[in-house]
Computed example of a mutant assay.
Amino acid sequence: MFVAFDDTDSLESMCTTFLATEMIKALGVYDLIGLPRLVRLNPAVPWKTRGNGALCLRFGVGRGECDMVGVLDGSPVYSYKRMYEEADRDLVLDVAERIVAKWSRTTEGASPGLVVSERKPAQSLYWSAVRSIVRKEDTLRELQRIGADMVGWEGGRGIIGASAAMAWKPRDSTYEIITYREKERWGTPRYLDDLSVKEMDLRYPSTFNNFDHHTGRRAISPHTPCPVLFGVRGDDPKELMSAVFSLRSETPARWIMFLSNQGTDDHLIRGEPSLPDRSYDVLATVSEAPRTVTGGHVIFQVTTSKGNLDCAAYEPTKEFRDIVRELRPGDRLRLFGELRAEPRTL
């Protein structure tokens, strides 16, 4: 039985992935089939919270070999590759609905959605949600086609992301282990040794996005008072586990491994930027030299096969702007970026 949910957190607190650990605990009468899936959707949607990630898990009675993929409050979590029997749909729906209702930040702007189904939606729903803007009515029509149950709160926008996460059939994938703090530590400063993160980044090359060696800052821990301690991403699940356990930090209360589409570039549309709130991969030639504007942003103009386009390296990109400032008219580029509606900028 597939269980998917999205839009449970806010800019201020919580993390949708934490609900996955609560779901696994509450549905402990069943086995976890496959890895929990953390699916990042269109990063350019205007209403995203942080990573725009949706979750999908599958429960049933496992068969054959299993692997340990996490620990929740001292108890190991095992994942089975094969399933002998489906979980009871009504039970799963009842438990999942209570978990999402309990932990969602609806008073802080969350619009949660929950989907439970024996069948997956069409894969096209994932590709639409990772690259463009999906209408809720189109999603509901697909869920009705496959006979799925759905629940929404405060508008239920999360039904779209939940359905897309369920529809994901990986062409490429990566892994992430996320660790969670003891509840009494939520909102307090995290203890995570920066040197151990730097050492881990150098020692385990299959991991990525761990540490900025130029600024000396780690990139694996959040800055909000959410339950997450840190998360490490990688291409090799065995090496990833070794990397996580090499870090010096406060003792996590929980950890779980996710299968993810992070680092796959599924969100990029190859071709000329046309519609806003999407991400593009486009070839271009610099037509006007870069200039720095109020706020420290660096703007330059390029020419594509469809005409001129302004591009921006915003102030938060820091040293990247220094590279952009070296560009000169005639330089040929391959650009990756989000198209903004107003002002129209990549």
Rank of each mutant, 00 (worst) to 15 (best):
S279Q: 13
F245L: 15
K198M: 13
A243F: 14
G147A: 06
A253C: 08
K120H: 00
M200W: 07
Y175E: 01
D88I: 12
G296K: 00
A253V: 03
A313C: 11
L283C: 02
G152N: 11
L32N: 03
I323N: 01
I160A: 15
V298F: 07
I160Q: 10
V232P: 04
E250H: 08
P343I: 02
E118W: 01
E154L: 00
I256R: 05
R254E: 12
P273H: 04
P225W: 10
E118P: 00
Y314L: 13
I299M: 14
E272P: 05
S128M: 08
P276Y: 10
T285P: 08
E338D: 13
R334C: 11
R328E: 07
G296S: 11
L192E: 01
V286D: 02
V302Y: 11
R217F: 15
R334F: 01
E22N: 05
V282Y: 11
H214W: 08
D9R: 13
V228N: 01
G109P: 13
L247H: 04
L202C: 12
S163P: 06
R218K: 10
L27V: 05
W186C: 02
I177Q: 13
A87G: 14
F5V: 08
W127E: 08
S111E: 15
G234K: 12
D201E: 06
G234V: 06
A165E: 11
E239H: 04
P43M: 01
R119V: 01
R157I: 04
W168N: 09
A313E: 05
L140W: 05
L93R: 09
R321S: 13
R131I: 11
A167P: 02
I256V: 12
R328Q: 12
L57I: 13
L125Q: 09
I177E: 08
P76L: 08
S124F: 00
F211G: 08
K238T: 11
V29K: 14
D90A: 12
D236E: 11
G156Q: 00
E272T: 14
E108M: 14
W47G: 00
D7G: 10
K136W: 00
V197F: 06
I323W: 04
R278C: 12
P170I: 04
Y126G: 13
E319Q: 01
W127P: 00
T179A: 07
P189N: 09
K238H: 10
L143T: 10
S132M: 14
I33A: 00
K198F: 14
V3W: 01
A341M: 09
G53S: 06
S111H: 07
K318R: 14
R89V: 06
H213R: 07
R131H: 06
L240S: 11
V39G: 14
G234W: 07
G64A: 05
G74Y: 04
N42A: 10
F245T: 05
V61S: 07
F5A: 15
I220H: 10
M14G: 03
K25W: 02
T21W: 02
L55S: 01
L143I: 09
V116A: 15
D281G: 07
I269V: 15
G187R: 11
C56Y: 00
G53N: 05
T224A: 12
I220N: 14
A284W: 03
Y126F: 14
M150K: 09
D67Q: 08
D265Y: 12
I133H: 09
Y314V: 15
C226K: 03
G158P: 03
F320K: 08
V298M: 08
A44S: 15
V282S: 03
